[in-house]
Design a protein around this nucleic acid. Sequence first.
RNA 1: AGAGGAGUGGCAGAGUGGUCGAUUGCACUGGUCUUGAAAACCAGCGUACCGCGAGGUACCGGGGGUUCGAAUCCCUCCUCCUCUGCCA
Length: 424
Amino acid sequence: MLVVADILQHREKVIDGLKKRNFAGAEQKINKLIRLDTERKETQSHLDAVLAEANANAKEIGNFIKHGLTEQVALLKEETAALKQQGGQLKERLNTIRKSLKLFLYDIPNIPHPLVPPGTNEDDNEVVSEWGDAPALSDSALPHWELIKNYDIIDFELGNKLTGAGFPVYKGKGARLQRALINFFLTEAEKAGYTEIQPPILINEESGYGTGQLPDKEGQMYHTTEDNLYLIPTAEVPITNIYRDVILYEKDLPVKNAGYTPCFRREAGSWGSHVRGLNRLHQFDKVEIVQIQHPEKSYETLDEMREHIEGLIRKLGLKYRVLRLCGGDLGFTSAITYDMEVFSAAQKKWLEVSSVSNFETYQANRLKLRFKGTDNKTRLLHTLNGSALALPRIVAAILENYQTEEGIRIPEVLTPYTGFEMIP
RNA sequence: AGAGGAGUGGCAGAGUGGUCGAUUGCACUGGUCUUGAAAACCAGCGUACCGCGAGGUACCGGGGGUUCGAAUCCCUCCUCCUCUGCCA
């Protein structure tokens, strides 16, 4: 969430930023927020004064008792009881104000970075770069949902039987390809200096709030009501929440963590014919990279992460492009996001396989993730994360782009991990 | 899952109703001394909110309660340890 002090200091900038996102009622909401904060300060000051007086009385009563001045004790107790009642009311009011202030802050998204282009939807995203060539496929080339049937490597019907739509079963070389990709991505992350993490894939409510999935995306996560836990939609949640309520030292920065997890998304209401095959699933595998960085260095880090991700796609030999998301398409908690899209040759579609974002202090503020600088001051850190990479669409692109008459060729970098060069 | 015990500042560890935000040790930071280092000595050393400041307020696992006053008493939840049970 945004920092109230920043809102007070840069009111116009904040409002302009929210407008770039097409955030409805930006001005009114910010004004209301400022009023609430003023009220909060006033109430707090008042309460503090009352408590200070009550505390002084309590000490005085202690002294009276010590000296056996029972009448004074009774008198002062009575007086203090009144203060206490007043304090109770103020406290209640303060809590109410605090709560609605928090709700307001939860409701306000991050301010976009100046580089973020204006726009309302994905058509307004800016193509930053493009790399590679689409393979020359024969006329008999098939989309991946046909290929997986023909080669019997991924089975949606079986998934339907076991769980339901969007939970495919990977079989034989299909399963092995999954394992190879995860292994390849993790090894590359390790080479790039990331520490591998294996986090829990169920998280509690607090963690959900920490990285901003709650309350914004409540309905998008699978919820186990018995224990009030959520299945993670991305490894970002547990891996970033490791640093909830943590104060780091400047010398420990940047923190670089990576992890493989399955990811679970309900995708409520976003099902349709355009999401055939592996294009959209309820459960999928992903390797995520997360960095925690000094506020002045986070944009260098963002570039570094982007290069890492692009490197992976290049090594796999897939044609791709990089998009800078426009204000309207930007995630709630993100200040800037780049999407990497791979070209799926048979579908003739761009498929998003990675999204890398700088959240600046938005998550850190909720997480209370700070660092102690060399000046010994405590400040909020910047958090960043990116997919490196999400598997299903990469698999879709590999299957389609590498299909031949003899079978599906495996990209060279993967063969040490798969142990085979061809799915015949 | 049942019984018992415990949760205090970065760590260790005092404190069981009254100036306790908390003794002390270690660690850490600055200084003195030293050719340098170590040792010794001196000083500093949690977080948040309000205030220009002096200063005030809150926080001893979380939440609630008793009391003029709670780290200390009560209730509840969470976590950890020991034993029993169960289990991959």
